[in-house]
Design a protein around this nucleic acid. Structure first.
Length: 558
RNA sequence: GCGCCUGUAGCUCAGUAGGAUAGAGCAACGGCCUUCUAAGCCGUGUGCCAAAGGUUCGAAUCCUUUCAGGCGCACCA
């Protein structure tokens, strides 16, 4: 799966490394240690295809000027049997490499051979990774924050798969605890109100329409037989009824959204199987938990937190925190995932340190857990900020969004920016002018290619083309961009940021559209035409690979 | 008050683990369809990189302080 660009970068690195060694041996300069040689792509193409700043990096330890060091490195570099055409010293001490263009044509061969796996690598070495995302409360429909988390989480999972990780996508169902109790109270109040009783609605209950809707349907289906039932049993029945429906709806919506989970993990199972109590006991036994004022506390301060946290309330009910520790222990110890990645909204970031602390207390290396903190989505409508809260009732749901702008636009849009950036989602723009969405720009490139291929309808095999005919500026730029994908994916993994892929897809599409306007594929000259067919087939493949990662479809006709 | 995230063109954002002249999209203006999809292409300009110090060959990027916005700091999740 080693791609041409990676091979070239590695070979340049090696050549530079050997040259430095040789220079030191002949006494041109001295170094304490070999620096890590970084090969980068200069922004300005007149600076060559690749460059390195290594001469500047070692000025300090060598105590010679960057220019002098650079000259020696260039003198001693062995460029035989490589793609390197020439090497030059430029600017403050950059060493620039100009390559024979032949390597670009090999890139096309890579894509042609590797197809869907072009861009993949094996750096993940089969490590087991659990990616948990969305995990929306099943007390109501999913909101825009869940939508963003879904796009980011699924994207991260896909990138990791490309890099050879063994990925499991997981949804944690919070079907236990306080908010479920609130959910039950809210349902009960609406039920009784619907049946004419003058009941006060819980102050911090769920005020959404969906709660009333559930109870309306429930009354129609089950009549009014719960009116005289004891409250606890009644709430239990309501919760079971509504939770199932909500969960079903969540699954349907996510299916529409193009997200497939491997595991739906239920919080209540942790309680039933006594895992929550077990983890609390373990913390107690290890001396990291203590009792105070009738509650059980975790000594989070011993792990760098500002204060300790409650594991068991003084009413004997464990907190969400305790369950979360048990859950992550289940992932990392019981189920033996090498790495656990969670995507959380910024409103949960305060929870990160203490969870990692708890894992450390239990003897789990905290670095095995990575939390991606995603900044919140802010909705604007006609310039006004509309708050989104499940309890306030009025909100835009994921399924509204899919209905209005479509899954492709939504998923692309949410991965247009890095998780770190605050996202203003302009509803008017998204819902009224969805044609402005950049996703169409990429899809259109794909559809255009499909259209050309459909009309030409020529079978071309690699052996019958002369790729060196592809030498127009736009052709070279396009191939150069195609060559970048493997590096882009590695970058996306290092940052755990799928938006890198989105941006790459936009850049690639732009290079394709430029090519399209400058060069025709359908030509009298059959040789050139066949070469260009290969070029656009490769472009089509790479667009598909990118859109596949993002969970966006690649239509053949638009 | 403390912690995390953010501050780059009129707007929305990139800026590749410190590099060469700071980039895109939108918006504005001008061009390009008798030939493969004009949801496209080509061209025109815009910056006290929030502010001030510091680190070094070199800073939008790293450190310190200040300012502004978002989010946290529950026996809620």
């Amino acid at each position: 799966m080693k791609s041409t660009i990676n091979k070239i970068i590695a070979s340049i690195k090696l050549a530079v490394n050997e040259s430095i060694t040789r220079s030191v041996d002949e006494g041109a300069f001295t170094i304490d240690h070999m620096p890590s040689i970084i090969i980068e792509v200069p922004r300005d193409t007149t600076h060559g295809e690749f460059s390195t700043n290594v001469a500047m990096q070692i000025t300090r330890q060598a105590k010679k000027s960057p220019k002098l060091i650079g000259e020696v490195i260039i003198k001693n570099i062995d460029t035989n049997n490589s793609y390197i055409k020439s090497v030059e010293l430029a600017g403050p001490g950059f060493i620039n490499f100009h390559l024979n263009q032949n390597w670009l044509y090999e890139v096309l061969e890579d894509i042609y051979d590797l197809r869907g796996s072009y861009g993949s690598s094996d750096i993940g070495a089969g490590k087991k990774v659990n990616v948990e995302f969305i995990s929306a409360n099943p007390t109501g429909p999913m909101h825009m924050g869940n939508a963003r988390g879904g796009a980011i989480g699924d994207g991260i999972a896909s990138i990791l798969q490309c890099a050879g990780y063994q990925v499991s996508r997981e949804f944690y169902i919070n079907d236990a605890g306080n908010q479920i109790e609130k959910f039950g109270q809210s349902l009960e109040a609406r039920y009784l109100q619907l049946l004419g009783q003058n009941i006060e609605f819980p102050e911090d209950g769920y005020k959404g329409e969906d709660i009333t809707e559930h109870m309306k349907n429930f009354i129609e289906e089950q009549h009014k037989e719960y009116i005289d039932e004891e409250s606890d049993r009644r709430k239990k029945a309501f919760i079971e009824y509504a939770l199932n429906l909500n969960l079903q709806k969540i699954k349907e919506d996510l299916n529409e959204y193009g997200i497939k989970y491997d595991v739906w993990f239920s919080e209540s199972v942790l309680h039933c199987q006594n895992q929550v109590n077990a983890v609390i006991d373990e913390l107690k036994n290890k001396g990291y938990a203590y009792e105070k004022e009738g509650a059980v506390w975790f000594k989070a301060t011993e792990f760098g937190c500002e204060k300790d946290d409650v594991l068991v309330r003084n009413n004997g009910i464990p907190t969400y925190f305790a369950a979360d520790i048990a859950y992550h222990l289940d992932k990392l110890r019981t189920r033996e995932f090498d790495w656990s990645i969670n995507v959380w909204g910024a409103d949960h970031h305060g929870h990160v340190a203490r969870l990692k602390g708890a894992l450390e207390a239990l003897g789990i290396e905290p670095d095995r857990l990575t939390i991606i903190i995603m900044q919140l989505v802010r909705l604007t409508r006609k310039g006004e900020i509309s708050r989104m809260s499940k309890r306030s009732g009025k909100m835009v749901t994921l399924s509204d969004l899919i209905d209005e702008v479509g899954k492709d636009a939504a998923r692309f849009f949410f991965n247009l920016r890095s998780p770190d950036s605050h996202l203003d989602f302009d509803l008017d723009l998204a819902m009224e002018q969805s044609n402005d969405n950049p996703v169409f720009y990429v899809q259109y490139a794909h559809a255009r290619i499909c259209s050309i291929l459909r009309q030409l309808d020529v079978e071309v095999s690699f052996s019958q083309v002369t790729l060196t005919l592809l030498k127009e500026k736009e052709e070279i730029l396009l191939i150069r961009k195609l060559a970048d994908l493997p590096q882009e994916i590695i970058m996306a993994i290092e940052k755990l940021d799928p938006s890198k892929i989105t941006k790459y897809a936009l850049d690639l599409s732009s290079d394709f559209h430029s090519f399209y306007n400058a060069c025709r594929v359908k030509l009298e000259d059959e040789e050139l035409m066949k070469s260009r067919i290969i070029l656009i087939q490769c472009t089509k493949q790479v667009i598909e690979n990118c859109l596949g990662i993002l969970g966006v479809s690649a239509p053949e006709i638009m």
